[in-house]
């Protein structure tokens, strides 16, 4: 439960008492999480769609449909993750790791890596 840095949630009764610096950090973290979840999450979902479209062992049209249908679950999960992670930085790191993994799978499936 103990955590370093301010939570991104504001409790109205507490907000008045927060020093301006803490408030700024709270908003900064919030902005970063929103960007990571919405923008980064979309990018991750798009990447997952491309990778799965090209690598699922199905007919080409079937792979495209399956990958695209699943993409919204990926995006939603990414948004949930961005707001659930213990810190904003951790949220971003998690998404980047996911993207890196997907790229790696892609390269392996495409035979560009041993």
């Amino acid at each position: 439960m103990a955590r370093i840095g301010p939570s991104f949630r504001s409790v109205a009764s507490l907000r008045v008492r927060l020093p301006p610096d803490t408030e700024r950090r709270r908003l900064g973290g919030l902005l970063l999480r929103s960007l990571a979840g919405i923008g980064g999450g979309y990018a991750l979902a798009a990447l997952a769609t491309v990778v799965l479209s090209l690598s699922l062992p199905l007919a080409r049209s079937e792979a495209v449909l399956a990958a695209t249908m699943a993409s919204f679950a990926v995006h939603a999960a990414a948004i949930i993750w961005a707001f659930a992670a213990r810190s904003a930085l951790r949220a971003v790191t998690g998404l980047v790791t996911g993207a890196a993994l997907l790229t790696l799978i892609h390269l392996v499936v495409q035979g560009q890596l041993p």
Binding site: L47, T49, V50, S53, L54, R60, M69, S71, F72
Partner: peptide
């Protein structure tokens, strides 16, 4: 979301086709 998925998430189909 799935109804308009090829508009919202066109990246798979664009790469595969």
């Amino acid at each position: 979301l799935v109804l308009f998925m090829l508009m919202v998430m066109p990246w798979g189909i664009d790469r595969a086709y």
